[in-house]
Simulated assay, not measured.
Amino acid sequence: MKLSSIFKTAMLSAAILSAGLQAKPVYVATTAIVEHPALDAVRDGVKEVLTENGYTGDELKFTYESAQGKPDIAAQIARKMVGDQPDIIVAIATPSAQAAVTVSDTIPVVFSAVTDPIGAKLIPSLVKPGGNVTGLSDMANVKEHLSLIKEFIPKVKAIGVPYNPGEANSVSMLAVIKEEAKKMGIEIVESAAPRSSDVMIATKQLVGKVDAIYCPIDNTIISAVESVVKVGIDAQVPVFAGDTDTVSRGAIAAVGYDYFDLGRQTGDIVVRILKGEKPGDIDVKMANGTNLYVNPTMAKRMGIEIPSTVLSRATKIIE
């Protein structure tokens, strides 16, 4: 074979190899502890930003798996994802993020919808966290939430909070709720619901002890919030929430984030990493932007009126 033929063959092989390498899609593996509107919206927001940045079609492999509310399944999913070697793992909510961080020390992990990433031991610092982990915190403005309840019920003395004591996110949030409530002279009555199936029983235990029920950003409670709403209607105890998506599912009102927008904010971090930045060099982002949603129909069913001051500044009224 002539030297020129050998050279042409080598060049053709290199071109084919290069084309194959270029054709390999970016692989973003996404997981969440449970499926519910807020967490689903985060996932969808991430994917929209990827699409806007050119990661689409054959250029993107985007997978999603739900742990169905079970930490042991979250751990199985995380181990499988590491074995599949994606370019980035996006872990939505605290248990899924903890599972991913535990098994991955090289693949970048971007968490989202995590209230207290330091308390959950995901990162040592919000500023340049180091390692392969960064993300977005959705720490809620609890003071604003309690002030909203007080606007509905000026003489509120006790607020019931169902929560999952096994979720680090929920334990951190409950501590903040108690701290802020104490400043306002409000008693917090907690009721544990370790599983979604426990939510109705936990909520019923609050009846007769509280003036209102507040559903924090707790994946177990939110996944079964219809049970809380039913108790609220039956017992005529108004139900409020820490996330706006829950208002369309029966809560009377909420001041909170648009979780699709939080997904977009998370997607911005994912794109930065895909373009070459190291996760550990990216500061953890704090969610921004709040909305006020109200549900007049549910307010009526729970025996309470929405103050005109609340209606006048509502971002969205759900009929």
Score class of each variant (00 low, 15 high):
L174R: 12
K285W: 09
A140R: 10
S312R: 13
D198A: 01
M173N: 13
E190H: 03
R79H: 10
T56D: 15
P124T: 14
G131D: 07
E52N: 12
V210C: 06
A93Q: 05
V46Y: 05
M173G: 05
A241C: 10
R43E: 09
K155F: 00
P279W: 15
A29R: 03
G303T: 13
I201L: 15
L174F: 02
I282P: 01
A140K: 04
N132W: 02
K24R: 13
L17N: 10
E59R: 15
V28A: 03
T56M: 11
T56P: 09
G276Y: 00
P279A: 08
N164R: 02
P71G: 03
L262K: 10
V28N: 01
Q85I: 10
A168Q: 11
I273W: 08
P108K: 09
L3R: 13
M11A: 14
A32G: 03
Y259R: 01
G303C: 01
V103D: 06
Q265F: 04
A254E: 01
V171C: 07
P296C: 05
T30N: 07
P117K: 00
Q205W: 08
V239M: 05
V231L: 09
N219C: 04
I123Q: 06
D258Y: 05
V237A: 03
K155N: 11
K47W: 04
F111Y: 06
A97W: 02
E35G: 02
I269W: 04
E35K: 03
K275L: 08
E179A: 13
N288D: 14
L60A: 08
P95C: 00
A15C: 15
V82A: 00
E277G: 00
S5G: 12
V49R: 04
I282M: 08
V49I: 15
T266D: 10
I89S: 02
I304C: 00
M1Y: 11
M200P: 09
G289N: 06
Q236K: 14
T203G: 01
G131I: 02
A67V: 05
D243C: 05
P71S: 11
R79V: 14
D84A: 11
G289E: 12
K230E: 15
V90L: 05
T309D: 14
I89R: 07
I306R: 12
V90I: 08
A202K: 04
A192C: 04
V270Q: 02
S248N: 12
I149H: 02
I186C: 03
R301V: 10
A23T: 12
L206M: 03
K155Y: 01
L136G: 06
D283S: 13
G263R: 02
V127K: 15
Q205Y: 06
A253C: 07
V228I: 11
A140L: 11
C215V: 13
D58T: 14
A74S: 06
D84L: 10
K300Q: 13
G267C: 07
S137H: 09
G119D: 11
I201H: 15
L60V: 04
G160Y: 02
V210S: 06
A99T: 03
T244R: 02
S5L: 14
S4R: 14
I221P: 01
M298R: 09
I273C: 03
I306E: 13
P25E: 03
H36K: 03
A74Q: 02
L12C: 15
V229Y: 01
F111Q: 01
K183F: 10
L39D: 00
A10S: 10
K128S: 11
G250Y: 04
N141E: 14
Q22P: 08
